[in-house]
Design a binder for these strands. Sequence first.
DNA 1: GCCAACGTTGGC
DNA 2: GCCAACGTTGGC
Length: 159
Amino acid sequence: MTRAQRHWLVKSEPNAFSWQDLWSSPRRTTSWDGVRNFQARNFLRDDMQVGDLAFFYHSSADPTAIMGICEVVRAGYPDDTAFDSKSGHFDPKSDPKKPTWYMVDFKAVRPLAHPPTLARLREERGLSKMVLLQRGSRLSVQPVTDAEWEIIERIGANG
DNA sequence: GCCAACGTTGGC
DNA sequence: GCCAACGTTGGC
């Protein structure tokens, strides 16, 4: 059983891991570890599938912007950094036999020629319902509708 | 650096 | 189950 490819947006602080870091990673691929929010975890564990595409967003950056597009190349699997007491993402409550936290693998597909900034996205009427733009929205893994995806791709290509 | 908004924890 | 306190996120 297949289903339509879904679209997502994932946030990263470039100080911690930037779009450029992903682009220069082996096979342009990384495991998206360290997500410690249950709603975001559910998306990673239950909904993301191989072939889904995601916007890579720089948060706490100057400027905050969507930098590029990446693809899910491995669906949800346990985040082993939660079991590593030396990891900054260690969670003693996550049991390896019944993991609390999950991750996926992302591969960079292409950068956006004109990375849409947060301010630019807010100008777009068709994006007013976008999760990223909602007041107080902090979700680091979030769904993007097909319509939103198309608008942002166009802005990213043409400025 | 500030601070609003949010999620989690823990006492009751 | 309620909710105050706390820690974190993330824009500005």
